[in-house]
Amino acid sequence: MSTGLLFALVGAALFPLGAAGLLLQRHLLRRILAFNLMGSGAFLVLVGLAQRQDVPDPVPQAMVLTGIVVAVAATALALALTRRLHALTGRLELPEAAHD
């Protein structure tokens, strides 16, 4: 098995793990971590699968760079919102859906 395919398989395992965490975890920091895990899974698949013959392909690498920056932006926003929620309510979990 080539290294690229191995990366992709690891990514294929990480993504569902992260997605499940994003859905199941209640603590916001854990959810943010889960999101990053999920994103890393997708990036691994993107780079790994494309070079499963172990010949580097610059296009997905550039895409992953773009993806990482987007993920950083999203993470920063999530952290900012989490801090703000903590400052306002003292909690680090989302309130149950308001039944209004």
């Binding site: 992709a8 990514g11 999101f35 999920m38 994103g39 997708a42 993107l46 699968l49």
Partner: peptide, 20 residues
């Protein structure tokens, strides 16, 4: 944010697979 990230994450994985 979490919903939209999960959604676009799934979309991105799909794109990755398509590229693969």
């Amino acid at each position: 944010l979490f919903a939209t990230l999960l959604g676009s994450g799934a979309y991105l994985l799909g794109v990755a697979l398509i590229y693969g």
